[in-house]
Design a protein around this nucleic acid. Structure first.
Length: 579
DNA sequence: ATAGGGTTAG
């Protein structure tokens, strides 16, 4: 361990006094001057840091803003303790991070772009004396859930010595988020059986499951459960009312949603409940009612505006969406991340280039786009889809590494694939691991598509073969489709045919028609007949002229429609803040 | 101390 007591900065040596005092005064200055945060934290990284100080330093920072730097610091502290290999004094509160800093750190891990810091903290937690602390364990549960690692979450849950309502709620939400609805209800059953009373969070999670399934009957059943099992004041709260309305809306039960809304008491009728109703009517394409309700809404906010704008976008009424956005700005509401994402798709649909550029400027200011993966992903996706792959890449590489998420990589790889930059896509794919990001099944669809559009046969198979053994992602029919098409486009039509027949899935019409198309291209009549027989079995009305060549056509049409968009987008936004 | 809620969507 290189323990330095002197740090150099700008030619001036700062003498550090080992011990807590310096840290505490730094901490104080850090609170007062946010601009110093990054520097002060770097300074601290070079110092031996007493753990209690670290805890005090970290707790407020891990909760808000950019937790990445704080997380690095926390891990550093943990490693320092670990390297010392001192026997951990069981009763001593000294020199060891306390349990609440583990919770705070894990909460930060859940919001981090990559799961790796969370894995490390789990390891340290196991060695600490808080391994069975229910707060720490619940935070860990939430961490696994937030990265969709529900099997790890469940394993952890099974091993927890104590479980409380929060543990159950967290596991249920984890399953709902991974669309394992059946498991979510199963956990709920066990929860009730073990005598724990569900609370508002439980009901909300279950209603989320009903909404996901679009199962109106299930939503009604959960409504009944809530009425019977919740404390009356919880049942009548705005939170529960909002989840009920949200579930009914998503299950297309507007009348029921309206009933809940009408019956809600005044204190439960908050902005969220209003917004849910507005967005519900907008989803149901009842724009008159949605707008009337929106105007009746006592305290509109950015989210409510965004909900209505989003309704118009979803209905393809882009012009109205853009007009509404302008009204919103005039009324003095500031666009947030969701607004930008929503309005951007309206711009693309409506061909409003000036607004798209203005939005890019808006998020380029203060480098917002460089620290917000969702924004960056939307812009990367938009630029790539319009063939502005260079601008897409600029947006991508502008994002700080700590903020690069799996979705962002997927969007960039997908963009490179579509523009036939296969090699670049593979390079990017290889880069993910170093940021602690694990490719998922979507990543593989993108990267294998990159190979097929660029004719990279051997690389494609190398990656395909590594999917399960190296990355633990089981190939699905989409991946097999890519591989069959990769072979077919390469002219290996016999191999493609054999490959399709040996797939562990029943080939669908997508697979066969891509083979027919490749046969037409390479003039292979024998395989084409075989493929067409299969297509006829799948669809007795199959005719070669109905073959979904539409891909090609629509691509051509899309290109034409977006040519104008691209022309403008290729010029960087005229904005000094961007970049 | 630990968890979500309404807006984003190819």
């Amino acid at each position: 361990m290189g323990r330095r007591s002197k740090l150099r900065r700008g030619g001036r040596a700062i003498t550090a006094i080992p011990g807590g005092f310096l840290h505490l005064s730094l901490l104080a200055s850090l609170r007062r001057r946010p601009s110093l945060q990054a520097h002060a934290q770097l300074l601290l990284l070079g110092l031996p840091l007493p753990a209690p100080t670290a805890s005090r330093l970290l707790r407020p920072h891990l909760r808000s803003g950019n937790p990445s730097a704080s997380l690095r610091l926390f891990l550093r502290v943990l490693r320092d303790r670990d390297c010392d290999r001192r026997p951990c004094p069981v009763d001593s509160q000294e020199d060891v991070p306390d349990s609440s800093s583990f919770s705070a750190a894990l909460a930060a891990c859940s919001r981090h772009a990559s799961p790796s810091p969370g894995f490390s903290i789990h390891a340290f937690l196991l060695k600490s004396r808080f391994a069975s602390n229910v707060y720490a364990a619940n935070s860990l549960l939430h961490f696994y859930g937030s990265f969709g690692l529900h099997s790890l979450a469940h394993k952890l849950f099974d091993e927890m010595p104590t479980r409380d309502t929060v543990s159950f709620n967290t596991l249920i939400s984890s399953y709902v988020q991974s669309c394992c609805i059946h498991d979510a209800f199963e956990v709920f059953r066990i929860m009730v059986e073990s005598g724990l009373r569900p609370d508002g969070w439980t009901v909300t999670a279950l209603l989320g499951a009903c909404a996901e399934l679009q199962d109106l009957r299930a939503a009604k059943a959960v409504h009944g459960v809530a009425r019977r099992m919740l404390e009356p004041q919880v049942f009548h709260s705005g939170e529960v009312a909002t989840s009920l309305v949200d579930a009914y809306v998503k299950c297309r039960g507007m009348e029921l949603a309206r009933q809940v809304f009408d019956l809600a008491e005044d204190n439960a009728r908050n902005a969220r409940l209003w917004t849910t109703m507005v967005s519900g009517y907008a989803r149901a394409q009842e724009f008159d009612i949605a707008q009337r309700l929106f105007h009746e809404m006592p305290e509109k906010d950015t989210v409510a505006w965004t909900a209505l704008i989003g309704g118009f976008v979803r209905a393809g009424r882009y012009k109205e969406a853009v007009v509404l956005f302008e009204e919103m700005e005039e009324a003095g509401f500031e666009a947030d991340e969701a607004t930008i994402v929503t309005v951007l798709s309206a711009c693309v649909g409506y061909g409003n280039i000036d607004l798209a550029k203005r939005l890019h400027c808006l998020v380029g200011r203060d480098g917002l786009i460089n620290r917000n993966a969702k924004l960056a992903t939307t812009f990367v996706d938009m630029y790539a889809k319009h063939g502005c792959i260079q601008t897409a890449q600029e947006v991508f590489s502008g994002v700080d590494d700590d903020f690069k998420t799996l979705e962002l990589f997927n969007a960039m790889i997908n963009g490179l694939a579509r523009c036939k930059f296969g090699e670049k896509a593979i390079a990017l794919f290889d880069e993910m691991g170093s940021l602690g990001l694990h490719p998922d099944k979507i990543t593989f669809v993108c990267i294998l598509s990159a190979c097929r559009y660029s004719g990279l046969v051997s690389q494609g198979f190398r990656i395909f073969d590594s999917m399960e053994e190296k990355y633990g992602v089981k190939p699905e029919i989409e991946h097999y489709t890519c591989m069959a098409d990769l072979l077919a486009r390469d002219g290996q039509l016999d191999n493609a045919y054999i490959f399709i027949q040996n797939m562990p899935f029943k080939a669908n019409s997508v697979v066969w028609s891509s083979l027919v198309r490749a046969c037409m291209l390479h003039g292979n009549i024998k395989i084409r007949k075989l493929a067409e027989e299969q297509l006829l079995q799948l669809d007795p009305n199959y005719k070669p002229e109905n073959l979904p060549l539409s891909n090609l056509f629509s691509e051509g049409k899309r290109k034409e429609r977006t040519a104008r968009v691209r022309k403008f987008l290729n010029h960087k936004p005229v904005c000094k803040h961007t970049k």
